[in-house]
Design a protein around this nucleic acid. Structure first.
Length: 309
DNA sequence: AAGACGAAAGTGGTTGA
DNA sequence: TCAACAACTTTCGTCTT
């Protein structure tokens, strides 16, 4: 795939002798040695590989600008080609030295990213998350690396923290336990790294809304739509009555689902609900008791059920 | 027998002195 | 930094359906 060169002539010596060094991924003038732009093929790297590998389809067709490829958008460039013309010979030498260092730093970052991105890919596929989430995880992780947040921390642990942070940002209801399971990182560490990256990258997340859990749990329990919406109602009213604060959103969702499942005669056991909600039976129990106690209309409906039975 | 219930003791996180 | 505290868990014995 021929990407059009931005220059036909070398801006330095005006020779029409520009070549594209495939291996280094840079365009250089063969006459004077000027490197025009070594990031010219930033996201071309992988394209070329797919391309030359005839018969292989291009998996990434459509979205060339992606953070899920490790060399995208990386690192501050030391200067730009626009600056280059103005420099004296001496400054230019210095410029190249800086550039060299920059490249060395970049490769260190890139190798870290490569590792992290394949891990992210794996996690995303296990959790079956949409691709825009993968993109966001990759973007944030890249930012974390650039800010040096990973230094002194394990890559996997930071990845886990970022994954959880992004899930929270997008209100995608996955528990700490689930993230912990797929990443193999201790639950506490995931939470710690979540806080760490949130704090340092200014990621603001709201407390988890129990509503977000309800529909997922409901579908895992194969409850019908009206049962689910009953549970949603219960949660909403509970939130309005301010009896949800300080309690685990999973527990609230679980308790509401338990009640709803009884009201609509789609009984699920406390154990079943506890399992999908990732809490104990005791919590389901306490939660639904609390809900009934504080929401008068519920006790009426429960009475109704009992009367019918 | 399965499910629901509740007591008791333990754990991890938050808060406030 | 430490202690108190509330929420949640684990475990287990008992009651209900």
């Amino acid at each position: 795939m021929a990407k059009d060169l931005q220059y036909k002539k070398c801006p330095e010596c005006a020779a029409e002798n520009l070549t594209w060094n495939k291996d280094k991924g840079e365009v250089a003038c063969k006459t004077c040695g000027l490197v025009l732009d070594d990031k010219l093929f930033d996201f071309g790297q992988e394209w070329r590989e797919f391309d030359s590998d005839s018969g292989q389809s291009q998996r990434r067709t459509g979205a060339p600008l992606t953070y899920t490829q490790e060399d995208r958008g990386l690192g501050t460039e030391v200067g730009t080609k626009a600056d280059l013309y103005k420099l004296s010979k001496k400054d230019k030498d210095r410029f190249y030295r800086l550039r060299l260092w920059q490249r060395r730093v970049s490769t260190a970052i890139e190798s870290n990213l490569r590792l992290a991105l394949s891990e992210i890919k794996r996690i995303v596929s296990v959790l079956t998350l949409p691709s825009y989430v993968e993109e966001e995880i990759a973007r944030i992780y890249t930012e974390a690396v650039q800010r040096g947040l990973v230094r002194g921390h394990s890559t996997e642990a930071v990845v886990a923290g970022v994954v959880y942070a992004v899930l929270r940002m997008y209100d995608i209801p996955r528990t700490l336990n689930e993230v912990s399971d797929v990443t193999g990182i201790d639950k506490k560490k995931v939470a710690k790294n979540f806080k760490y990256v949130s704090r340092n990258l200014n990621i603001r997340t709201l407390p988890i809304d129990p509503l977000n859990y309800v529909s997922r749990f409901a579908s895992e329990l194969q409850l019908r739509a009206h049962t689910q919406s009953k549970a949603l109602d219960i949660v909403q009213i509970a939130m309005k009555e301010e009896i949800t604060s300080g309690r685990s959103p999973k527990g609230i969702a679980a308790g509401a689902l338990y009640i709803a499942s009884r009201i609509h005669n789609e009984k699920r056991t406390q154990a079943e609900i506890a399992k999908v909600a990732d809490v104990t039976e005791v919590t389901v129990r306490n939660s639904y008791k609390e809900l009934i106690e504080n929401l008068d209309f519920l006790s009426d409906e429960i009475e109704q059920i009992k009367a019918d039975a």
